[in-house]
């Protein structure tokens, strides 16, 4: 970056802040932000309780409404059901991020599994048939899965470029509401909230599924 550009920018910062202060001349100097009341009488969630059968059911219903396929499985059956689901997805490598639980990974065809160590080039991700990940949290009311790049989820490109995304969700991760989920998530991490497969409403405001993100979203919820 050149000095030539940096100088006026410094002035811009001062000037914009000055303009703001002048514009707010009607705000008493003694007023603090917390003096402006923010009533939070809206629901903070909690019903159905996190991890409850009702929360899982609601998540499944809402995800399905947005065109995701949802599979409710027991802990014992999880691995084999996941293996069968992925085997049935059609050809192509399956990307599995670092930290994906070994008991689930072991049911995937080892010849198809691609690990992101070292980081896969984007062209290779583009050739992959699918990606299988865990999630950081799920929101039942809105049918949302949240990824935070933690173990088993990988960097954001992994769940973006392949055309099929299979998510394994544990029941205890399923919360009822947006406020509960945000409180549990860590903003320092890059977060991706996924509510159904990619879609657009840009043609006559009609929802069409499948644009740039994965066109198939499957959730395996382990209860």
């Amino acid at each position: 970056m050149t000095i030539r550009r940096k100088e006026p920018e410094m002035n811009a910062r001062t000037e914009v802040l000055d303009r703001i202060r002048r514009a707010l001349a009607d705000v008493p100097a003694s007023e603090r932000p917390q003096d402006v009341p923010v009533p939070r009488r809206y629901s903070h969630g909690g019903a159905p309780p996190t991890g409850s059968a009702a929360a899982v059911e609601l998540l499944a219903e809402r995800l399905a409404e947005y065109g995701a396929s949802v599979h409710l499985v027991s802990t014992q059956d999880a691995a084999s059901r996941l293996g069968r689901l992925v085997a049935g997805l059609g050809p192509g490598p399956v990307v599995v991020p670092r930290g994906f639980p070994p008991e689930w990974r072991s049911t995937l065809d080892p010849d198809r599994v691609l690990t992101d160590v070292p980081a896969l080039p984007v062209a290779e991700l583009d050739r992959a048939g699918a990606v299988v990940t865990t999630v950081a949290a799920a929101i039942a009311t809105t049918g949302t899965l949240v990824l935070d790049g933690g173990p088993g989820q990988g960097r954001r490109a992994l769940t973006l470029v392949p055309d099929v995304h299979v998510c394994v969700v544990r029941a205890r991760q399923v919360m009822a509401s947006v406020p509960e989920a945000l409180a549990a998530l860590r903003p320092a991490r890059p977060l991706t909230f996924v509510s159904g497969p990619s879609a657009t409403s840009d043609i006559e405001l009609d929802r069409v599924e499948g644009v740039h993100g994965p066109r198939t979203l499957a959730a395996v919820v382990v209860t």
């Binding site: 947005y66 009311t141 809105t142 949302t144 977060l191 996924v194 990619s198």
Partner: peptide, 27 residues
Amino acid sequence: QDLEVFLQLLPRSSTGERMNPYTSTWT
């Protein structure tokens, strides 16, 4: 925490969805 308000208001007002397909946050 303020984001919890807007992530509920915006999708329902905008596309009429409970939640839009993707929301990204980064720091």
